[in-house]
Write a protein that binds this DNA or RNA. Structure first.
Lengths: 207, 207
DNA sequence: GCTGGAATACACCTTTTGTACGATGTGGCG
DNA sequence: CGCCACATCGTACAAAAGGTGTATTCCAGC
């Protein structure tokens, strides 16, 4: 029997996960918490096999910080739950020692298999997302320089080259040069396509 | 018995709402949909009393657009589900005829009372949103036509005008005409700025 | 049966953007 | 020191996008 603790600030999500796990004979939901602090405390006290951790907790410590503390306990594996796979802090959670991550809109089968492989200690990420994550982390040359990222941010904000040049105290030519490099690295050939690609890869945050 | 249809792209959320409604004697969940299109179709066919509508649907039409179409049917009341009450498009949903809105992190009691008051025809707006509604002057026509939304979606995907024209079986000039209208409605003057504005207003999905 | 929005389409012109050559300076590193 | 990535600027040209004006069709609403 795999003992699971769930940490999520949304009652709806907790209820949904609870319902999804209810039908599983080899999984038992032993505790729920709405905040990171409570989650850490619960993990310490109940020593579950797996902790399902939401990243965007409304109040208190962030999910990745809670993950770090739970991993430090030594026992439980942490599976990160997140709404968007474009989320930049998935990497932070992995870095904090999360065993894997799951999209909240994943079908319930993915949830079950992910829990089981996490409990089994396999540090492999969920199959459906593993390739995407790996592709993002070690993609060929998607490493934009700081300056290029800055330019890309302004492009995504809808600024033209001249506006960007003024904003960054550059000549328009330099902005263009940066853009050429950005296009090459992202494999696109227009500013709008670059924004689309950057959002898809989580290089910039849409807001 | 209040008949309810649920529209949300997240299986976890659907499962959670379903579990929350299961214990209610006077509420019956008669249908679920994962996309706006399916939701509209379901509302048309089942003629429920209340439709629970998520705003951020992963693919297809936006929740506010689905709300508009369902309200146009005449029968069902639409109760909007949203993750953050800072969401800009709550107003769009209210404008589209939603009876009220509900935060996803609301306790289950709130959900039940909101459903009942929606079914009774009275609107359930949280104070914070109500005040913002009062303080806001009528936004100048940000309602894009379906065709314009379609064009905007392709623009956000990074396509050029010619590619869009081929994709939609149009002439390039027609695409341009649509874009001119889109720019006017969004208050911008370039395709990239339009994408930025559309993402900020939740008109299109980033990913 | 008229009005008006939506969708379609074109011409003409200006501005912006992308591309293709360059070029210089700086800082880190083997 | 020499190499290289990064950042900076230039000119010139081609392609794409944006701006303005006009026009037709269709369909819904008054």
């Amino acid at each position: 029997m795999i003992r699971v603790v769930l940490v999520d600030d949304h009652p709806v999500v907790r209820s949904g996960i609870r319902a999804m796990l209810a039908g599983q004979p080899d999984v038992e939901l032993v505790g729920e918490a709405a905040t990171g602090e409570d989650g850490v405390e619960l993990a310490r006290r109940l020593a579950p096999d797996v902790v399902l951790m939401d990243l965007q907790l409304g109040a208190g410590i962030h999910g990745s910080e809670a993950t770090r503390r739970i991993v430090a306990l030594g026992g439980p594996r942490v599976l990160v739950l997140t709404t968007f796979d474009t989320d930049a802090d998935i990497l932070a959670a992995i870095d904090a020692g999360a065993t894997g991550y799951l999209l909240k809109d994943a079908p319930s089968d993915d949830l079950h298999t992910a829990i089981r492989s996490a409990a089994a200690g396999s540090s492999a990420l969920a199959p459906s997302v593993a390739s995407r994550l790996l592709g993002r982390v070690r993609a060929p040359d998607t490493t934009l320089t700081p300056r290029e990222l800055e330019v890309l941010g302004h492009v995504a904000a809808g600024l033209g080259n001249r506006q960007i040049s003024r904003e960054m105290f550059l000549s328009e030519t330099t902005v263009k040069t940066h853009l050429v490099h950005i296009y090459a690295k992202l494999g696109v050939d227009s500013r709008t396509a670059a924004v689309a690609a950057a959002i898809r890869k989580g290089l910039i945050r849409p807001s």
